[in-house]
Amino acid sequence: MKKKEWILLAVIAVVSLAAILIMRLPKNTAEGTGTNHQPYVYADDSEDPYASAVLPDWEPEGEWIAVVFRSSRVVLYFDSGVDGEYTVHGNVGHMDIEVKDRKWHVKDVDCYDYTCKNMGWMSADALLPIICLPNDLVIIDAETAQNMTGG
């Protein structure tokens, strides 16, 4: 490789590293409000198989996180401030989501890729949603999910 090519690659590497370090800086999180409501709402598909879950109107301990199926339907809302485990189903099979200490991750998934599982724990200040392409499931904050699904 030529010298200027090495320099360009070094610049890309340094800028990427700097961006990663900036994104990993800790942020302050708001304290919960301490409610006794159910910390999750699944979509009720008993009558309409395409029905989305309804965003709960009570305040969550953390924030409402949505699991979106095929970019069109919210299948689950869960409170990121309450520990728990949830199971949803996608194109290929099931996806088990674990919530602990205001963070959530894919504990187990039925697909060939495991990218979503390997993404590890996400929190409210995470910039990325968890995406499982084979199952077409996205785990994202409720506001973005509503914009995405038009509801």
Partner: peptide, 15 residues
């Protein structure tokens, strides 16, 4: 996925 925030993954991918 209408997710411009996914660009946050780029530094990891570039590296």
């Amino acid at each position: 996925y209408m997710q411009p925030r996914i660009a946050a993954i780029l530094p990891y991918l570039l590296l």
